[in-house]
Design a protein around this nucleic acid. Structure first.
Length: 112
DNA sequence: TCTATGACTCCGG
DNA sequence: CCCGGAGCCATAG
């Protein structure tokens, strides 16, 4: 847990990246993990998102799995809340999956 | 300190 | 094409 002052560095990094996701764009757990230098820790990104659930600054709904599937939808209040949020941002979604993922995909490294 | 778990991903059948 | 298992690694209990 908090070995250092404040939260774990890993979570903080994930939050920082998530906050940078532009409106109407999405990214994947793996992309974030890779950007953090922990490509094999994609699951941890999801874990961080789970913790981020308490932080409104982190748009967790803009983070999907590598297939563009809204895997985290179950963690939101409504069954379709995550999809609603993304559609509201102009992202076309069908059956809880982003239609043109490459079109809406945002690479964290592009912003750095 | 050790065990279980998961909003992932890859690979094989 | 669809389904299942194994690998990974940090956090929580």
């Amino acid at each position: 847990m908090e070995r250092k002052t404040g939260s774990s560095n890993f979570f903080t990094k994930v939050y920082e990246v998530a906050k940078r996701i532009p409106f109407g764009k999405v990214t994947s757990y793996g992309a974030i993990a890779k950007h953090l230098g922990a490509e094999r820790s994609a699951r941890m990104v999801g874990w961080a998102m789970n913790a981020a659930h308490n932080i409104d600054d982190v748009p967790a709904h803009r983070v999907v799995n590598r297939n563009g599937l809204l895997t985290g939808k179950s963690h939101f209040d409504g069954t379709n809340l995550m999809q609603q949020l993304l559609e509201n941002e102009g992202v076309e979604i069908k059956n809880y999956q982003i239609v043109d993922l490459e079109k809406y995909f945002w690479n964290p490294q592009d912003n750095f």
